[in-house]
Nucleic acid binder design. Structure first.
Length: 236
DNA sequence: AAAAGACCCAACCGCCGCATA
DNA sequence: TTATGCGGCGGTTGGGTCTTT
């Protein structure tokens, strides 16, 4: 965030000012050529000073647009692809602490951008709040996340660990212990009432909430479980 | 196979705080 | 002290893609 304008920079501004005034700015999706131009410019000059970059690089874009394109897409350490269950857990956890502080949350997920996290929240999380007809910012929904969604993610994480270590064999005792340990830690952290899962009973307790395509499984949670929990919440 | 609707995500917009002149 | 410019943030949107009917 530099408002500093050195003499050289000022000169650079003036040199391109006249021609830039006549250039019509481009909007919408970036082309491969634009991406290449931006990457090369940053490789040579470094990132930052976005308005100067926009003027000097030959890109017919605003500085803001260049910055966004770089930070959210082109920067080498930007991670692509679906969020892992671990990352989803972290987002749910941090959002419960900080609310819509996307940038702050993103700082704790290396390679993930605030935009991506924001999109995840809006498309996946809020969707379920809508389905349940609950305000996504309500404590009721926060409870739903803590009681059902997060445990199901923990379950997934432990299942992944299991697959990584012993793809075809019986689940080893250590993995079961790990899973149970995570559940206990989770309970302690959130003062949660979700059940400790006895060995061999994991699928029965959380079966409807896990197993298929990530978050959508949660939406398929048994209605009886929901009404039970809803009644409980309302009474207490 | 085609139309309609839902979903997803890249990009834009407006606002704010900070630094500088 | 005030005006200006910039970077950064969160909210919103447009359109491409996927799914359902």
């Amino acid at each position: 965030m530099s408002g500093k304008k050195g003499r050289r920079e000022q000169q650079e501004y003036e040199e391109v000012e006249v021609e830039v005034e006549e250039i019509e700015l481009r909007r919408g999706p970036w082309t491969v050529e634009e991406d290449t131009l931006l990457i090369h410019y940053i490789a040579y000059h470094g990132e930052g000073r976005w308005n100067l970059l926009a003027r000097c690089s030959g890109l017919k874009r605003t500085g803001k647009s260049c910055r966004l394109r770089w930070l959210n897409y082109l920067k080498p350490d930007v991670k692509r692809g679906n969020l892992t269950p671990e990352e989803q857990m972290l987002i749910l956890d941090l959002h419960s602490k900080w609310g819509n502080r996307w940038s702050k949350i993103a700082q704790h997920l290396p390679g993930r951008t605030d935009n991506e996290i924001k999109n995840y929240w809006r498309t996946r999380v809020q969707k379920h709040a809508k389905q349940l007809k609950i305000d996504a910012n309500s404590t009721l929904f926060q409870d739903a996340i803590r009681r059902f969604w997060m445990p199901s993610l923990i379950q997934k994480i432990s299942e992944q660990q299991q697959q990584q270590h012993q793809p075809q064999q019986q689940r080893p005792q250590t993995e079961i212990a790990n899973h149970n340990m995570m559940m206990v830690e989770f309970d302690e952290k959130y003062n949660n009432t979700s059940q400790f899962v006895p060995e061999g009973e994991e699928g029965r307790v959380l079966g409807s909430a896990v197993g298929g395509d990530e978050v959508s499984d949660w939406a398929m949670m048994e209605e009886s479980l929901w009404s039970l929990w809803m009644n409980d919440s309302i009474i207490s």
